[in-house]
């Protein structure tokens, strides 16, 4: 075990898989010599050489397309899109190609690629360094979408993603790279070294996709969330003094329906929280599955707390970000309804 922040855990996941499988290759903008603008691939080029870890042209479409081609050859490409906000030029290759290759070829061809991309706001990145576009990918059949909330999960999930034979979009909430940010931007950030999930095995281990984690057991209501919002929700639960069960989905697709349904059937109340914009966000899907599966157990309407349906405004970042106050208010409302 070692104390790792999320960047180190991600680095360790890639390192571990590269060591085990020489077909794992890493490329993307600035990921080679420099080791990535967030340093997630630092040291890997030095260790594995330029043929396995290399820089790419600034062409997200090109990165995704060549990753598909490499995957078809038999490699296991791990690409980085520098910010999730810049993934759209790669959208066609992901949606029309990677996601459907297995289906359209009757299983003859497939694209075992992993796309890593930092997402989310709270770093004063403005509208082009803050987005959470996960629901655009969960809507696409043939893609898996993952978003870890801590170093331990990040490593285990990323190893699974890389070894998965289907394309996986792996979003990394950059606001929690260095610590479990709980939305209290006015307070100093607690580093991962002071958090249980910052203890990460140096060795290989996997966390299955499609398995949620109950990060706080509770009886009064169920909070379904993922990414940075896991920590915001935990802070909000403290603030609202509600005995909530907090579920960290970890992987959005595949989705751990059993954990969700069991919890909501137990509590009868549900709050869904994500940082992404509201309309057609992943919360809409979650509401639908809760309604489909738990309708007769529900004692109150389901609430959503999300980012507003606007671009991420630079100076008004904290008015936009769904912080602990907003979540706590929803928790109380649902608990008391």
């Amino acid at each position: 075990m070692a104390a790792m922040n999320m960047i180190q855990a991600i680095n360790s996941a890639i390192d571990t898989t590269m060591e085990r499988d020489e077909n794992v290759v890493v490329f993307g903008e600035d990921v080679g010599y420099f080791g990535g603008v967030f340093r997630c691939t630092a040291g890997l080029q030095k260790k594995y050489g330029k043929k396995r870890v290399f820089d790419s042209p600034i062409s997200e479409g090109g990165i995704m397309a060549t990753a598909i081609g490499m995957g078809v050859y038999g490699l296991r490409p791990v690409t980085e899109i520098q910010f999730a906000d810049y993934i759209y030029p790669a959208f066609d290759q992901l949606v029309s190609e990677a996601a459907r290759l297995r289906y359209r070829s009757g299983g003859e061809f497939f694209a075992p690629l992993t796309v890593r991309s930092p997402c989310g706001g709270g770093i004063f990145g403005g509208q082009t360094h803050s987005q959470s576009p996960e629901s655009m990918f969960t809507h696409v059949c043939g893609l898996k979408t993952v978003m870890p909330s801590n170093p331990y999960d990040a490593k285990g999930l990323l190893i699974t993603a890389i070894e998965d034979d289907d394309p996986v979009v792996f979003f990394e909430p950059k606001r929690i790279y260095n610590g479990p940010f709980d939305g209290h931007h006015e307070r100093p950030l607690t580093p991962w070294s002071k958090h249980a999930m910052g203890e990460v095995p140096e060795a290989y281990y996997k966390i299955p996709l499609g398995k949620a984690a109950i990060v706080r057991p509770g009886e009064k209501l169920t909070v379904i969330t993922y990414g940075t919002m896991v920590h915001v929700c935990l802070a909000a639960v403290e603030q609202a003094q509600v005995d909530a069960e907090v579920i960290d989905l970890r992987s959005l697709l595949p989705l751990d329906l059993d954990t969700i349904v069991d919890s909501v059937k137990k509590t009868g109340r549900c709050v869904i929280v994500h940082e992404a914009t509201r309309t057609c966000g992943f919360g809409a899907e979650l509401m639908a599955v809760v309604q489909e599966n738990c309708f007769w157990s529900l004692e109150a309407p389901i609430e959503r707390v999300t980012g507003w349906d606007t671009p991420y405004p630079h100076a008004l970042e904290w008015a936009y970000f769904p912080g602990p106050d907003r979540v706590a208010k929803a928790l109380k409302k649902v608990a008391e309804a």
Binding site: D85, Q127, T128, A315, L316
Partner: peptide, 24 residues
């Protein structure tokens, strides 16, 4: 620009200067 944009992402229509995008 009402505090919406990252610094240096100017827009100045009256200068014939198109709004700068963060997307390259």
């Amino acid at each position: 620009l009402k505090g919406r944009q990252l610094p240096v992402m100017y827009s100045a229509r009256d200068a014939g200067f198109f709004s700068i995008s963060g997307n390259l």
